[in-house]
């Protein structure tokens, strides 16, 4: 069984890459030690028996609701807040 509650700088570096964050060496060290503290408290959840308990993705019951399949136009310009646009499209960084 994996030890979910152990964290080190290498793992922080991996997580940061997944989350698209560039961290300095100092930040990696700091977050690793703080997360270790936090996870020590989080591990209390292991004490709770949740067998046969369903997860609550929302606090109240949510029902799917569908609107009629009719065309609706956006009422505003989606490009109004970007500096990176060209010919009515967003312009992004290189993918490959």
């Amino acid at each position: 069984m994996k030890d979910y509650w152990k964290i080190d700088e290498k793992l922080v570096e991996h997580i940061a890459a997944v989350a698209r964050l560039h961290l300095t060496e100092e930040e990696k060290k700091k977050y690793a030690s703080q997360l270790e503290d936090i996870l020590q408290v989080f591990r209390q959840i292991d004490d709770v028996n949740t067998e046969n308990v369903n997860p609550s993705f929302h606090p109240i019951e949510i029902k799917n609701r569908f609107r009629d399949d009719e065309e609706k136009k956006t009422q505003w310009d989606p490009l109004a807040n970007t500096k990176h646009k060209e010919e009515g499209y967003f312009k992004g960084p290189k993918i490959v």
Binding site: I45, V48, T50, V53, N54, P55, S56, F57, P59
Partner: peptide
């Protein structure tokens, strides 16, 4: 696990 605890 946390979502199940929310149920409880």
């Amino acid at each position: 696990k946390a979502l199940k605890i929310r149920t409880l």
